[in-house]
Design a protein around this nucleic acid. Structure first.
Lengths: 119, 119
DNA sequence: CATAGTATGTAGTATATAGTACACATAGAA
DNA sequence: TTCTATGTGTACTATATACTACATACTATG
């Protein structure tokens, strides 16, 4: 069950299509601004077909999915996140490596405390 | 004083060269495995010249600099850090955005507590 | 059954990324 | 002075990324 960007998008689009016929490949392609043949390639996992961050964000909005998740499935990290790390690389690169082995709930706890202004 | 990848590398290399003549552009280029003309372009900031992460790491080792800093100056994020974020994108992308406005000492404190196994 | 809409295959394009190869002019050391 | 090493300019290359354009075949519906 290796979820790829393509299979993930196709599955979600087909699901939405059951309720709403405007979720055909052609119509969705038009809404995000690419040719249908290209979205077709992407959904089928053509290794020479990629979307830019901008189009992935539009697609995420269309499908009601988290843009960061779709970007990740496409092998990308959001530009704004990259920029934050690039500005303080020693600090962030090391912190992320340290957080690597922590379970989700621990990372979430840190995130919550950060948001609550506990620091 | 906009520090670019090129100016940073050139400055550090020239500094090392004062003590050790093996830090000529040609010799360093040979050690990291690129043509001297190419390293020359890079040090002068040619916008069509880039090094791969691998060569940037070799260069960082040569110059005694932090690889993450050199990568950042080249507009890149280490592949291992990208991979960590890609595996848990909702969690990490959001945490990094939340940490954006925090001062270094606060981020450092979190990093220290994470390393000390406080979580 | 006609036809509108749908997915897909093939070919081509533009720009970015990551270099090599080689000639050239100059500065330093023997 | 001769030779060696140095930095740089120019031209060329290959692959990745991010698409368009168009033809074709299928599918569903009025």
């Amino acid at each position: 069950m290796t979820t790829t960007f393509g299979s993930f998008v196709r599955a979600k689009r087909e699901k939405l299509r059951k309720q709403d016929s405007s979720f055909s490949l052609r119509r969705v392609a038009a809404r995000i601004g690419v040719e249908p043949s290209y979205l077709s390639k992407i959904e089928r996992g053509d290794h020479k077909a990629y979307l830019t961050e901008e189009k992935i964000r539009l697609l995420a909005t269309e499908l009601g999915e988290d843009p960061d998740v779709l970007l990740a499935l496409s092998g990308k990290i959001s530009k704004d996140v990259q920029e934050i790390i690039r500005r303080r690389p020693e600090l962030f690169a090391q912190l992320i490596r340290d957080l690597k082995k922590m379970p989700d709930h621990a990372v979430l706890r840190i995130a919550r405390e950060v948001r609550d202004g506990k620091w």
